[in-house]
């Protein structure tokens, strides 16, 4: 009875960590402009950080061939030829961490031309770390309360 109670608490803790909305104190929205260089097969800078609610402008400058920039989750993209800077404007209204990637085939490693946009905090990373810790705790807990559980010699010959 006692152990079930603890297990229940751990499961609830897990659900809370996985689903509770993370709301930080609101930061005044800013306008941010990033100038991103694109070459085969990397962006520079390749990691962007903005706050939720920011108005973001990404200027894409291709320095060798035609490249694109597609942001996962936001489902928006631009395409830039060398010599013709392209600009992408959007409101960073979805928090979390998103990959952005080239969406114009630009050579062999094109599918792996990737950058990272973090809006606010990388919440799934923190949630998953929390879940991992709860998982580890629960395992030690199960181990200490039910030691006879591990006898499983059901091998068929």
């Amino acid at each position: 009875m006692h152990s079930r109670f603890f297990l229940l608490i751990l499961i609830i803790a897990g659900l809370v960590v996985a689903f509770v909305p993370l709301s930080f104190r609101p930061i005044a929205p800013q306008e941010r402009t990033f100038r991103i260089g694109a070459r085969q097969f990397a962006y520079s800078p390749s990691e962007l950080k903005v706050n939720p609610g920011d108005k973001v402008t990404i200027q894409l400058v291709s320095t060798d061939v035609v490249h694109g920039l597609y942001i996962d989750g936001y489902d928006i993209s631009i395409e830039a030829d060398p010599g013709q800077t392209a600009a992408l404007n959007f409101f960073a209204d979805k928090p979390g961490s998103f990959r952005f990637r080239c969406n114009v085939t630009c050579g062999a490693m094109h599918p792996f031309m990737i950058g990272k946009l973090t809006v606010g905090s990388n919440q799934w990373l923190y949630r998953s770390i929390g879940l991992s810790i709860i998982a580890a705790i629960s395992l030690f807990f199960i181990r200490s309360t039910r030691p006879s559980d591990r006898q499983l010699p059901i091998t068929i010959y």
């Binding site: 962006y43 520079s44 390749s46 792996f112 990737i114 950058g115």
Partner: peptide, 14 residues
């Protein structure tokens, strides 16, 4: 290497 945002690693691997 493949899914990270580090271009130098991709260059080295390719």
């Amino acid at each position: 290497v493949l899914l990270g945002p580090w271009g130098a690693l991709k260059d080295a691997a390719y």
